[in-house]
Design a protein around this nucleic acid. Structure first.
Lengths: 160, 160
DNA sequence: CAGCAACCGTTGATTACTGCAACGATTGCG
DNA sequence: CGCAATCGTTGCAGTAATCAACGGTTGCTG
């Protein structure tokens, strides 16, 4: 188990975390991994003036499906009321538009503008770099396993 | 790619998420996996009257290292001021005690009581069930890969 | 050994985010 | 037509994250 070659200096912090058993629990690991990962994502998004949620919203708005705010909120697991502010900001920057759904005038379908699409494409490229930063040294086969497992966890039983 | 045998009913929600590319981004996946996972963890902890942070704190208090509040806060990436309320609650339930560090009377070393150890052991057993729920159908070898990757992401460059 | 900067736990204020109820506008159904 | 349900929106309450400040304590330094 312990490599002779690379002597690992274990901080008391790491040692106690291991002794507590927390580093064997998936909940603790995912919570912590989320902190680290999203910090990197935020870093990448900063230059585009986007935050995680506005970026995710913009990404969905770039698809061909004309999603309503309700659908958007459900997809992103965000409260519809929270989405209002996000869309206000995106629309204020002319990245998306709210179109009245002709089929149901209560709903607004959200679509990205050309500027929105362009910005989203650039941001997506930056965001994808995070995976490289985090899993760069891991062989491609294992990386696929990991991403697949995350997908499975993120979208449980019925849906992939 | 697409299995003939199992016809997958794709909801428009899943379809649009895929089309947006978000399901290929590690940031989105981890954020979402964290939501799902911690919901299960909370569920398991509820019967013990613990929340994530108090459980993690209690876990660390159960180790042989007599950690100070400062060290605890650093290990859990929680603000020291936030830890005060957590410890107040745990101490109020006689699960931990604050001992004045004889070496440095400014510091308080946190230790679990016998009751605290007992409760933590029970809670830990429940919490570990979450991994089974999430990764139960995945072969053991891949599970080890996944947990290892999470550890690597959660504790970047210098520390394992 | 006196004094001073630094550190510890704690308090308090400020800010941000989540979840929930309620509202007008609109729809679909009976 | 009338009524329940839905959509976007607003506002509010509870919770957490961040930061400054303070008394008590330590250790360094002159």
């Amino acid at each position: 188990m312990i490599q002779e070659g690379q002597r690992e200096e274990l901080s008391t912090e790491t040692r106690s975390l291991r002794a507590s058993g927390l580093t064997d629990e998936i909940g603790f690991l995912i919570a912590r991994a989320k902190l680290v990962t999203l910090e990197l994502v935020d870093e990448q998004l900063e230059e585009f003036g986007l935050k995680r949620q506005s970026y995710a919203t913009l990404s969905l708005a770039c698809t061909e499906y004309g999603l309503t705010q309700r659908e958007l909120a459900a997809s992103l697991k965000v409260d519809p009321s929270r989405l209002v502010a996000i869309l206000d900001e995106l629309q204020g920057r002319n990245l998306v538009v709210r179109e009245v759904d002709p089929a149901d005038r209560r709903s607004r379908t959200i679509r990205a503008t050309d500027a929105g699409r362009q910005l989203c494409a650039q941001a997506a490229e930056s965001v994808r770099r995070v995976e490289e930063l985090l899993l760069g040294e891991i062989p491609a086969g294992e990386r696929a396993t990991i991403m697949g497992a995350l997908r499975r966890i993120a979208f449980p039983s019925p849906r992939p």
